[in-house]
Amino acid sequence: MAGYTSHSHQEIDNTKYEFTEEELKQVQYHISKYPDKQSAVMPVLWMAQEKYGWLSDGAIQLVADSIGLSFAHVYGVATFYTMYFKRKMGKYLLEICTCLTCGICGGPEVLEYTKKKIQANEEGISPDGLFWVREAECLGACDTAPVMQFNNGHYVHNLNNDTIDKLIDEVRKGRLPEFVSIPLRDQSIIDD
């Protein structure tokens, strides 16, 4: 990757950033959805992040080149949204909500417990680099507070210290959480 300076990362990055034929077709599909190719930047950033785990300068340059935009524009977009990772962190991100409802229903305590459990450093990363814990803003699952989003994907509902213990053990064994559908409430009325 010539022609850019490294903004966020001091080490020399030897990764070869490239989309396969199949992925390039996917990029073209994203471009075709909108009247202007610039709109494809968010979906293609998602593709790059899923492929490389995070958005290094090289990955951002790849997104820019494959759509035909400037590095600066794509970099600007990538740095605006919190779900795009601009740094290489732990392998699995545990985002624990401590916002409004989760905040009053034990979210902050679960967050503290999780940090201790994985022996997180100041940045929230475990010594083995497997886990990365971060405080989340409202995830929109207040009925099952406190809630966690696992690695930008599935939600883990109704957290407490036991569920955290179980989750960490399972992930260490290579079993990742699955999607859990929370059934609708039955609307039986309670009268005194």
Binding site: Y34, D36, Q38, S39, A40, V41, M42, L45, W46, H73, G76, V77, F80, Y81, T82, M83, Y84, E137
Partner: peptide
């Protein structure tokens, strides 16, 4: 989207859809 509360504001949502 990619995690920005502001995108719920209608004009901000449009900017985001336009890839900005």
């Amino acid at each position: 989207g990619a995690g920005a509360y502001i995108c719920g504001e209608e004009t901000s949502l449009m900017e985001s859809l336009e890839g900005k």
